[in-house]
Write a protein that binds this DNA or RNA. Structure first.
Length: 644
RNA sequence: GCCCGAAUAGCUCAGCUGGUAGAGCACCUGUCUUGUAAACAGGGGGUCAGGGGUUCGAGUCCCCUUUCGGGCUCCA
């Protein structure tokens, strides 16, 4: 029989030949390096028989992501083998490869807890299995045989997985057999494929331990998840661990403290205390928001913090989010601190009569919000209990929805584009727990999809993740350690205006219910600042930097001129510090570099005489001398145009 | 909220199997008056997160609480 190779050549093989045979026919080196084979684009074990006319690609460690995934999947099985050796009675569930590594979920016997202190012991046992070069042997068995086996071995999770496989199979293609993979003492229900043997695992490391609910369901057992990673070489593993260490240096919680932007206190968990510099950064972003909103027809408004529970019942939040709101009472009235601005904006809209001629009405408000987030979900600035959004609500007619959504997408891109983030877009559709009719959801989801297509944007559908009142488009960005966070959002809402009885008077002189669009570009300022810190590693562009320059007089006799320079910069709106300590210039520069000031201005006799500044750029070093007026103009220009 | 772990000076950390706290940086004072990434000397600063227990004796062992870290669930 024949097989076709990636370079277009044909390979002659005996009937019944396997991927391993094909690799051997090409060359002994490839045979040794082979991990798996891609047959007609499908990854298979090397031992799987080929068919005539198959297109083949031999997977080796040079094959990139797919090869790494295979290796990590192999390593997950070795981890399970080691854990079964060390913890008799352990129950196994699943162990897939993931981004950057793998995990395996276990239920340890009652009373047994495993922590990262046990990693050394588990890793040692894994090494024994790797050294033994145990082969991954695949076996296709009937559902009955597999069930019997896992029942006998008291592995209820595997039994449940098989039962679900059978149950969820389409009627015209029922599941009759399942595949098992055995490496050493361990046999797992597994789709495969796997590499030839455990010895291919040249470098691995267990990384962390975590609880994880069985099947991701908080009502079910919490399993113990062990995370690890694996590479084909020790050098790659070392390089990866080094990258992780480097990424940790960008952590916004660390930089926030070092750069004196914000802090946290146990007296207000999940709520940042903003130091002067952090507050400045915050205000710069709010000013940026206002500047973008103004020409787009937004009007800034202010609404109260605390409302009667009746308002939350009307909006629907009381039913769905009461547990996550800060509740209070005043004169026996149940009140709640606002977790979002929309009901307040509905109240505001309803305070006046509106003609269709006024629409769209666009209210923006950087309002302070409080959400009683579960303690375990808090995370630096990324997930907090007290925050503000660059929030706005648009009330418009059905006909205006398309243009308004497009306008929102445009605004979000202009906002996020300024910072150069890599953005992932998601369209989140109707959730299980929702209000409104199916027709409403059909229409709303279609409108958002249309707007995305109109803008030529790539997006992914996130089934069932919409807000309870409508579908949404979300903008996601990843942090320094690869965790994804939602920033901007556009949400279509056909429910809340009706619940609040909002109307406008149409051209037909009748009352109509407006459509409401909720949108934010940065999301919350807190999270956005957290992302910015990690994105820039604390080295903000000039326009954004809390303090843009620091003046460094060389000796005490230069302090007067330094004050003059400070005054000139401040008069032009430049944010500037001065270091008047009687320290060496080297010392002042070092400290200023560590604080990541974009500009350092060194002032000595030469500068004082010539009305100049000797400028130094963060990271770059000396950039030469400027006439004081020229330098002031430069920074003012960079700030005004946000060009540096 | 759930699982695992952690909490020692402002920060980063040391403190062996229990014998009542230490370093570097930062801070303060003095000397030095400095030309592009760390001058020198001295000094102050800790109810070892909080509470309870075991013990002759607890930073160290046990329990509870709080907060934080890594995940899971959740995220209007």
């Amino acid at each position: 029989m024949k097989a076709l190779l990636p370079d277009g050549t044909e390979l002659q093989l005996d009937d019944g030949a396997t991927g391993a045979d094909a690799a051997a026919a090409i060359g002994a080196g490839l045979a040794r390096a082979a991990l798996a084979v891609k047959v007609d684009g499908q990854l298979r074990d090397l031992t799987a028989p080929l068919h005539d006319g198959a297109t083949l690609e031999i997977l080796t460690q040079k094959s990139g992501e797919e090869a790494l995934e295979l290796l990590r999947h192999d390593t997950a099985h070795v981890l399970a083998a080691a854990v079964i050796d060390l913890y008799p009675g352990v129950k196994i569930s699943i162990g897939p490869p993931i981004q950057d590594g793998f995990y395996y979920d276990f239920e340890f016997p009652p009373g047994v807890t495993v922590s990262d202190a046990d990693f050394a012991r588990i890793e040692a046992k894994m090494k024994e299995h790797i050294k033994a070069d145990e082969q991954f042997a695949r076996e296709d068995v009937s559902v009955g045989t597999a069930l019997e086996r896992f029942v006998r071995e008291q592995q209820p999770y595997k039994v449940e997985l098989i039962e679900d496989l059978v149950r969820n199979a389409p009627a015209d293609d029922p599941v009759e057999t399942v595949s098992l993979y055995t490496n050493g003492p361990f046999t797992d229900l597994c789709r495969g494929p796997h590499g030839p043997g455990t010895k291919r695992i040249k470098a691995f490391k267990l990384q962390s331990i975590a609880g994880a609910y069985w099947r991701g369901d908080a009502r079910r057992t919490m399993l113990t998840r062990i995370y690890g990673t694996a590479f084909f070489t020790k050098e790659e593993l070392a390089a990866y661990l080094e990258r992780v260490e480097e990424a940790k240096k960008r952590d916004h919680r660390k930089l926030g403290r070092e750069l004196r932007l914000f802090g946290f206190s146990a007296v207000a968990p999940g709520s940042a205390f903003w130091l002067p510099r952090g507050t400045q950064l915050w205000n710069t972003l709010v000013a940026f928001t206002r500047e973008l909103n103004r020409p787009r027809g937004y009007d800034e408004v202010k609404t109260p913090q605390i409302y009667d529970s009746e308002l939350w019942k009307t909006s629907g939040h009381w039913g769905k989010y009461k547990e996550n709101m800060f509740l209070t009472a005043a004169e026996d009235r149940d009140m709640a601190v606002k977790p979002m601005n929309c009901p307040g904006h509905c109240q505001l809209f309803g305070m006046q009569r509106h003609s269709h001629r006024e629409l769209p009405v666009r209210y923006s408000e950087p309002g302070l919000l409080h959400r009683y987030e579960p303690s375990g979900t808090l995370h630096g600035l990324m997930r907090v209990r007290h925050f503000a959004q660059d929030d706005a609500h648009i009330f418009c007619t059905e006909e205006q929805v398309q243009d308004e959504v497009i306008g929102c997408l445009d605004l979000i891109f202009e906002t996020l584009g300024r910072f150069g983030f890599d953005i992932d877009i998601e369209l989140s559709t109707r959730p299980e727990n929702r209000i409104g009719s199916e027709e409403m959801w059909d229409r709303a989801e279609a409108k958002l999809a249309d707007a995305l297509r109109h803008q030529g944007l790539e997006y992914r559908i996130n089934e069932g993740d919409g807000a309870f009142y409508g579908p949404k488009i979300d903008f996601h960005v990843t942090d320094s350690l690869g965790r994804s966070w939602q920033l901007g959002t556009v949400q279509l809402d056909y429910s809340m205006p009706a619940r609040f009885g909002l109307t406008y008077v149409g051209a037909d002189d009748r009352e109509h219910t407006p459509v409401m669009i909720h949108r934010a570009a940065m999301g919350s300022y807190e999270r956005f600042i957290g992302m910015l810190i990690e994105h820039y590693a604390g080295e903000f562009p000039v326009w954004l930097s809390p303090v843009q320059a620091i003046v460094l007089p060389i000796s005490d006799r230069h302090v007067d001129y330094a004050q003059e320079v400070v005054a000139a910069l401040q008069a032009a709106g430049v944010r500037v510090d001065v270091d008047e300590r009687t320290e060496s210039v080297g010392r002042k520069i070092r400290d200023a570099e560590l604080q990541k000031y974009p500009y350092m201005l060194i002032l000595g006799d030469r500068e004082a005489e010539g009305r100049e500044v000797a400028a130094r750029r963060h990271r770059e070093g000396d950039i030469g001398s400027f006439a004081l007026t020229d330098f002031v103009a430069r920074v003012a220009e960079e700030t005004a145009t946000r060009s540096a």
